[in-house]
Amino acid sequence: MKFFKKLFNSAKKNPLQAPEQPEELIESFGYDDLSEAEKANMAEREASQKALDRHWNAVGTSEKDVLGYMISPSFMGGPDWPSTRQAYRVVRRGDSIILATEGMSDPFDGAEGLGNGFEMELFIETSDIPNHALGAPGDVDPFRRSWAFELLKHLAAEVAHAGGLIHRLEKYGSMSYEIPGFSKSDYMSEQLPAHFVTADDMTGMVIGAPEPDFPTRIDDMPLSPVKLVCVTLITAAELEYIRTGGQNARNDLVARLKDAGVGHISRLNRASVV
């Protein structure tokens, strides 16, 4: 909640010089200390999480544990999500894995009447995660060492900096994005084939299309509908095609991915469709 963030920020301004306080002077907070607005926010957040649980478990088998942080990145200078909860969900679906953001659609901390956060969550689906980064059922931690998690985490930071993408996606239908510095990445540079990196060290993706074979709109969120936005890895040739042709080329690429049977799934062993 917002007051937790204020408390943390006041303590981290100069942590090396923060004097120890007697135990009786240390404040503690409980549910009864929350304002009515904060209690309502908490209830809306819990309802949002349950709606996401229902939706993802209808798509596949959603792991109970998420990939998260001991301390929210927003406390450490990272981009703000709607709440301090910044996590990633793992959904097992046949022989593929879905990694999805968890928290972008949380109600905003300390604000009312703004809907379900960014009104979106990002996800990527693939069956091409290396064995050492492929956690067994019940174990999500190995996925941190996968190219898919690194890509999704990087994109999520950019989306948070932009305050969400839902209005632009509604306008254009899809967007493309480039991640710079492929050669300096932790896992992508080791796990992605060479034809997914451009001559100028970029990795490309299409966001919002092609649509998957399951519903991507969640209407039963407590405040406003939420869109699940797919992220599809594209080859270097496909990225250059978009660079040259703009929106028309992107629309054509989406159609070609559908026609080729690739769809929204990120496949590492496929050839370019352009």
Score class of each variant (00 low, 15 high):
71 I>Q: 09
47 A>Q: 06
154 H>P: 02
35 S>T: 15
30 G>T: 14
251 N>H: 05
268 L>Y: 05
186 D>R: 15
164 G>S: 07
112 E>V: 09
192 L>V: 05
253 L>Q: 03
119 E>Q: 12
93 R>Q: 01
103 G>C: 06
11 A>L: 12
158 E>G: 11
179 I>R: 12
84 T>K: 07
234 I>G: 01
146 S>I: 00
1 M>R: 08
115 G>K: 04
5 K>I: 08
18 A>M: 12
247 Q>S: 08
44 E>G: 05
206 V>C: 02
19 P>R: 11
74 S>G: 01
2 K>E: 13
56 W>K: 07
171 K>S: 07
224 S>C: 08
229 V>E: 04
98 I>C: 01
29 F>E: 12
170 E>R: 15
5 K>Y: 15
254 V>A: 03
34 L>M: 14
12 K>V: 13
228 L>E: 07
105 S>I: 04
29 F>R: 10
188 M>L: 10
97 I>N: 00
105 S>T: 06
227 K>W: 11
191 Q>G: 01
194 A>R: 11
20 E>G: 12
177 Y>E: 10
217 R>H: 14
226 V>E: 00
160 A>K: 01
209 A>P: 04
228 L>C: 08
171 K>T: 14
133 A>R: 04
151 L>M: 15
161 H>V: 15
224 S>D: 02
148 A>D: 00
147 W>S: 03
95 D>A: 11
81 W>D: 01
73 P>T: 07
271 A>K: 12
273 V>F: 03
262 V>S: 11
114 L>F: 12
57 N>L: 08
118 F>N: 02
203 T>Y: 09
258 K>L: 14
47 A>W: 02
209 A>R: 09
166 I>L: 08
251 N>D: 04
31 Y>W: 10
117 G>S: 00
104 M>R: 00
13 K>V: 13
102 E>H: 14
96 S>N: 10
11 A>C: 08
57 N>I: 07
144 R>N: 12
165 L>T: 07
241 Y>V: 03
112 E>R: 06
226 V>M: 03
229 V>C: 05
145 R>T: 13
142 P>V: 11
91 V>S: 06
62 S>F: 11
121 E>Y: 05
33 D>E: 10
66 V>W: 07
120 M>F: 04
37 A>V: 09
246 G>Q: 03
246 G>M: 02
44 E>Q: 08
161 H>N: 14
262 V>W: 08
113 G>M: 03
82 P>M: 05
267 R>E: 10
24 E>I: 09
65 D>Q: 13
61 T>E: 06
125 E>A: 10
15 P>K: 03
74 S>C: 08
122 L>S: 04
39 K>L: 03
54 R>Q: 14
261 G>V: 07
